[in-house]
Write a protein that binds this DNA or RNA. Structure first.
Length: 657
RNA sequence: GCGCCCAUAGCUCAGCUGGAUAGAGCGUCGGUCUACGAAACCGAAGGUCGGGUGUUCGAAUCACCCUGGGCGCACCA
């Protein structure tokens, strides 16, 4: 909402500079002053002009202030500090505008489709905390994009081929002597069982080089589509994927489509992509050297950098097709990326894979006939791939491939949403009972490793969070029924987890620590929902005592103490109010920079301001009726904004907590 | 060797396109519950923003060089 005012102020500053000072300035910066006392918007343009005009910044600001024709939303401007031009909004008008903004639904989806790919857990183990960071970032991005009016398709890519599944198969066949039928009959948490079995199988294979032949044999059987191997692989990945969906549903993360790597192969996506790679000259067959017999794509030379002579003129090349004719992971990824942009002239078949209790359906690709006629998947104009920073090089290869094939636009719109990994703090690893070797102990953190079975399972963390939350709620509200208790515990756990995963900037390694993740006080998710619950509580009490109408304050009502907003005593009211209007501005900034923590911090600051506000200024006890109405309205607007904002973080607000 | 990232209070982190006294949270110390619920609020102590040079009216922020740490650079995925 504040965005329109900023835009008009910016335009007006441009005009005033041109007409009254005789200088052109493009898109002058508009800032928010460090304190509401100083104003609501700040224009530091005079500093920039000081040099050009050879005049003191303060003088320039004075002239500018005089020349400015104020936009309707701005009441006055003043010169402050060494030359800031500060604008004060028309506060009573603002109250009406903000109320309208918070009562209107956000814009409906419109425009070209955006695809977001996230989660992408290999189907050989349970989801862990690293996957949680991925899913939370991906899902929050999806929610923010949709909020801003973009149609979004969410894909969760399932890599069901390759060694990691083969190793698990060795575990079932060699260590547990179980075939597909037996595996299908296993009861209990299948992904948790696989977590242990995968680590066990990895250890078993690593113990004796001879045993590695088992992996090779298994891979070969898979490739040749040997029925027993195929059946086992299918049942494993199907069951694990369903477990992942269940885990992610616990934290409010859902998908539209599950594309399977096996189907990319089955539908010959690679062949088509390969054709294009060859005909465009992007891929080239190597005849000699260490990569002889491989199809490669040339990398580097992008920054126009000269090859270092010491490197022996070693041109970076990435192998797409191995000398034995099989395609590499990147090759498949290029084909998949092409499909997302509808560059392949071919499509998957689809089937309904899973139906949530509320009727929402997740579709899956299938190499069978398919039962969903819908082929509206794909066709994206922009693609976000949410993958941790360690895959940066591969993502670069994919974009380079697109560019080399003559799709610079699509390469440009292939956005790698990179974020740093979640590792374990040394104390955490020790707590989990892992034996750390000397190398581990010298590092600042320990990397999660599925192969070593080293990590914190997402479900375990969620269980612990819910358990803690439940006991906290119970101690505060012993009379709560189980349903209310459950929903409160769930909301608190969800808030704690999702905010924890979001509050760090994306290129910060999270050294996971239970004490920090399980915290409910201070800058945490529970703090955020607590402030909203308190606001709701005030309004509920008001309705109980005075009827539902008492909480419905018309912002245009003349019996609201608007002048209070301009008084020094009312500054905390105004500070909160003006902050409430920044949601879309922050959302856009967060999406634009892919720094979603910005939005989390924004909501945290709102919660802080509201907590301060209601501690200092009683709402229901206020004697002055006009001032009381102002506070009720403010409480209502705060709650609306928190409902909206927390919704964008996938966090529900419980009745009580 | 090449590339990317990190370094700010005792700890964990913010600091938006360079701008007004460097901010939170935790922890420490001291206050506030017969009140709209203390998962909260108020106050205090605590920082040569890793080091250096430069650009600028102005640098935690930009450039370059160091130091320390992390991660990539497979005919693995």
């Amino acid at each position: 909402m504040i965005g329109a005012t900023i835009a008009s102020l910016r335009q007006e500053v441009e005009r005033a500079c041109r007409e009254s000072l005789g200088v052109t300035i493009e898109a002058p910066a508009i800032e928010i002053p460090p304190e509401p006392r100083l104003g609501d918007l700040a224009v530091p343009v005079a500093f920039e002009l000081a040099r050009r005009l050879r005049r003191a910044p303060r003088d320039i600001a004075q002239d500018l202030a005089a020349a400015l024709r104020l936009p309707a939303a701005i009441a006055r401007v003043e010169v402050a500090g060494a030359g800031y031009l500060n604008a004060f909004l028309d506060r009573s008008r603002f109250l009406v505008d903000l109320s309208g903004h918070l009562h209107r639904p956000p814009p409906a989806a419109d425009g070209e489709k955006i695809t977001v790919e996230h989660t992408n857990i290999n189907p050989n183990k349970a989801a862990h905390i690293g996957h949680l960071r991925n899913a939370v970032l991906g899902d929050t991005l999806v929610r923010l994009l949709r909020h801003l009016g973009h149609p979004v398709e969410v894909q969760n890519y399932i890599d069901d081929t390759g060694v990691q599944v083969a190793d698990l198969m060795v575990g079932f066949e060699e260590l547990r002597h179980q075939d597909a039928e037996a595996v299908r009959a296993i009861e209990g948490r299948f992904d948790h069982l696989c977590w242990d079995l995968y680590a066990e199988a990895s250890k078993y294979l690593a113990a004796d080089p001879e045993r590695l032949k088992l992996r090779q044999q298994t891979l070969k059987r898979l490739e040749e589509r040997e029925p027993s191997a195929r059946a086992l692989a299918d049942v494993i990945s199907d069951r694990i994927v369903r477990c992942h969906l269940q885990t992610m549903d616990r934290i409010g993360v859902r998908y539209d489509l599950l594309p399977w790597e096996g189907d990319i192969l089955a539908f010959n996506f690679w062949e088509r992509a390969f054709e294009r790679l060859r005909s465009s000259g992007a891929a080239r067959l190597v005849s000699e050297g260490k990569n002889a017999g491989c199809w490669v794509m040339e990398m580097g030379a992008e920054e126009g950098g000269s090859e270092s002579p010491e490197a022996g003129g070693d041109v970076q090349e990435k192998i797409l097709v191995r000398s034995n004719g099989t395609v590499t992971y990147v090759g498949k990824d290029i084909a998949y990326q092409m499909w997302k942009f509808n560059l392949l002239d071919t499509d998957f078949h689809y089937r309904a894979f899973h139906r949530y209790p509320d009727g929402t359906v997740i579709h899956s690709t299938t190499c069978g006939k398919g039962d969903a006629s819908s082929s509206s998947f794909g066709h994206a104009s922009r693609v976000y791939n949410v993958i941790d920073v360690r895959q940066s090089y591969l993502q670069k290869v994919v974009a380079t491939g697109l560019r080399a094939m003559g799709y610079p636009g699509q390469a440009e719109q292939s956005i790698h949403f990179a974020y740093e990994m979640v590792a374990l703090s040394a104390t955490c690893a020790r707590e989990l009972g892992y034996k750390l070797d000397k190398e581990d102990l010298q590092r600042p953190f320990v990397e999660v490793s599925g192969r070593r079975g080293l990590g914190v399972k997402a479900d375990d963390l969620l269980d612990r969070l819910e358990e803690r939350a439940r006991s906290e709620v119970r101690s505060r509200h012993p009379d709560l029924d189980t349903e209310a208790l459950d929903s409160a515990a769930h909301a608190i756990a969800l808030a704690a987890l999702r905010y924890f995963m979001l509050k760090y900037t994306r290129n910060k390694v999270i050294a996971f620590d239970f004490d920090e993740a399980l915290a409910f006080e201070g800058e945490t998710g529970p703090y955020l929902i607590y402030s909203a619950v308190r606001a709701a509580n005030i309004l509920r009490k008001l309705r109980e005592r005075e009827g539902p109408a008492a909480a419905e304050i018309d912002p245009g009502d003349p019996h609201i103490d608007r002048d209070y907003l301009n008084s020094p005593e009312g500054l905390e009211h105004w500070g909160l109010l003006s902050a409430l209007a920044r949601d879309r501005w922050v959302a856009r900034q967060a999406v634009g920079s892919l720094e979603l923590s910005l939005f989390g911090k924004y909501l945290f600051s709102l919660a802080q301001q509201f907590n301060t506000f209601y501690h200092h200024h009683p709402v229901l006890q206020e004697k002055n009726p006009d001032r009381r109405r102002l506070r009720i309205l403010l409480t209502d607007l705060f709650l609306r904004q928190m409902e909206r904002g927390l919704g964008l973080l996938g966090i529900p607000i419980p009745e009580r907590m």
